[in-house]
Design a protein around this nucleic acid. Structure first.
Lengths: 243, 243
DNA sequence: ATCGGTTCTTAACTTAGATTAATGGCGGCC
DNA sequence: GGCCGCCATTAATCTAAGTTAAGAACCGAT
């Protein structure tokens, strides 16, 4: 009994894999070789172009998945949260994305090969994985829509609302908001803006009485109003099978 | 022997599913109930919010996948091409995206349930599906990066280069370019720009000697130069297993 | 306690892309 | 043939967001 075999089932309870698996599936998941690892802040866990063959389940801490551009800029694709899984292109081929820790980060890791091979023995696990992949896709699609067709102000609000809901689903939010160690530069790289403009947008949201983002935590002041203003509908964050 | 059972194997030869399947897998695929259907231009095949349970493989024609915004605008997510598959959220739950024909469109359709159930009996098909899903994700990720961090000019070039490569892989490109029935409004909705600005960007690309887009066809004049200018690297369009 | 780095904040100015408006081409249809 | 609707094209103007610059607040390290 390693540390991992203790902690892993516990994380599953609030994870993306919590729905649709019976005990034997979960036992099976536990046998796929997930081990718990720790990365320090700013550690690059996998770099764009690597031949990557691990899959990850977040245990705690913040990280980001990003593409790196030629001129040194980056586009952040997502901030995966506790219980969510990361497998940029683990299902074969080189990783077109980087995975970087932002705070101290604890993740469960397993070799992708073992994981994929394991799917053949557990149809319900395969189904749950497809559901999780579909949810990731929906998140990416909303992000893309944000960048393409929404104003900077709404875009910023939308991202913070989304993170709020995802953290709630992972039981990692507070009643009024959530802890968020992201800098305004991080937000800018996710939102396709400059950090200066993000600062303006946060001020605007504060002045309009929607939310405060100070000292590393987001505090919703008028969440319902904000959701309406940002045309935010959390439906896309629901897991298949979740009510 | 229906029409479909004739045409379907033939399309597979140039499709996303061409690699990694042996004859028995292909026979299995053929038994999943794919039928060939025709949709007229502008037909809405599935609408955002539908409980959707079909999956599609494009046979011929152009279509788009999009999200519809409250104010009547839309963000086009992708233009799926011959041999590629479409299954917005078919793996359970409601479709957060619309699927619309742009020209006359021929597609193979099958019930998602039968397809997903079939995966359990064919591990290699499941693996190939995961690969196809990973490629779709990579396309989406490039699109997102385009919107977030690239200029309108490069963004436009990048999209046209991508479509060129995808059509070549489907054996549907000409030596110097490809037929493209998209309007500048369609491009605008994909690129997060206005049609007027797309027009300016196409003129600019023409004046710089990179490409011409006239009378429904894209003609590359200096493809290598353009790929360099647009930082375009087709690696992300490769299928796992493809050389 | 002081220094240096990182992050936040604000103001002044510039620019890429949106908006508005107008024109011409082209194909379908009565 | 002439009308109508869609699409391409261009110019003039406006605005959201970027750029540059410069402090202030905060933090850890010496």
């Amino acid at each position: 009994m390693t540390f991992a075999s203790h902690a892993f089932p516990r994380v599953l309870e609030t994870s993306i894999f919590r729905i649709g698996l019976d005990d034997s599936d979960k036992a099976h998941l536990g046998s796929l070789g997930f081990i718990l690892r720790r990365y320090p802040p700013h550690a690059v866990i996998s770099r764009q172009g690597d031949g990557e063959d691990r899959i990850f389940v977040i245990h705690s801490g913040w990280s980001c998945i990003s593409t790196d551009l030629a001129d040194g800029e980056r586009q952040i694709l997502d901030f995966p949260q506790k219980g969510e899984f990361v497998a940029s292109r683990a299902f074969e081929g080189e990783a077109p994305e980087s995975f970087t820790a932002q705070t101290e980060l604890m993740v469960f890791e397993a070799p992708a090969k073992a994981f994929v091979a394991g799917l053949a023995h557990s149809p319900s696990l395969a189904g749950v994985l497809l559901g999780a992949v579909a949810r990731q896709r929906a998140i990416l699609v909303q992000h893309l829509t944000n960048l393409g067709r929404r104003s900077a102000l709404i875009r910023t609000a939308h991202l913070l609302l989304e993170l709020g809901v995802r953290l709630e689903k992972a039981n990692a939010a507070k009643k009024y908001g959530f802890e968020c160690p992201l800098t305004q530069y991080d937000l800018a790289d996710a939102l396709g803006l400059t950090a200066i403009h993000v600062n303006r947008m946060l001020r605007e949201l504060r002045e309009r009485g929607y939310l405060e983002f100070r000292h590393g935590s987001v505090h919703f002041l008028n969440r319902e109003g904000l959701e309406h203003f940002a045309e935010f509908d959390a439906g896309y964050l629901r897991l298949p099978g979740e009510t």
